[in-house]
Design a protein around this nucleic acid. Sequence first.
DNA 1: TGTCCGATTGGT
DNA 2: CCAATCGGACAG
Length: 211
Amino acid sequence: MERIGTVLPRDFYARDAAEVAPCLLGKLLCRRTEQGLCAGMIVETEAYQGPLDDAAHSYGGHPTERTRVMYGPAGHAYVFSIYGMHSCLNAVTADIGQPQAVLIRALEPMEGLALMEARRGTADPRLLCSGPGRLCQALGITRAQNGLDLTGEELFIAEYRDYPKAGICVSPRVNIDYATVYRDRLWRFFLKENPCVSAVPRRYAPRGILE
DNA sequence: TGTCCGATTGGT
DNA sequence: CCAATCGGACAG
């Protein structure tokens, strides 16, 4: 594989989520456990900008037990469970007290394929990490990793590849129809024509490229 | 304490 | 299209 680049410093995350989200595309998400190292290139993200964003868990700006880490310093993992059986990984962004985060929605598997396949129970490269729940299962990420420092050793993101703005598509965020005001914001970002981007309904087709 | 429900996934 | 499955959020 290509050499893993510099681990992203905390400064990288200390910006608005909508600014960080597209910048995470092409970066390498790495997970170290006793079982070994797994890594994949980030190919799809979504920005969540509480407390004004009515799609965000932090909407309203009132900290709860679940969203506590969103209010903390940037560059930490916000992991939540959903439907009682899946986990989703976010990178906390912005300043302390500003509960923003970027949801990692899909990876292109790059390292530790055998371990990912074992965890997922499939060898189909399109089913390994294409979806927020799937990539967490492939990398062995659960709520036990909530709050981890993303500049640390167990779970981190590193430089990897650079893509031009013309290679980045935008669309509305997936499955947030409960939102009204911020529902149609183009805050989903993904690599154009990358086969590992998650399969979503047609209404989430690309609306354009990154400005 | 009780009720409701989801930033998903996999199988009909 | 629909069920799985459970902790968090919130009402009372």
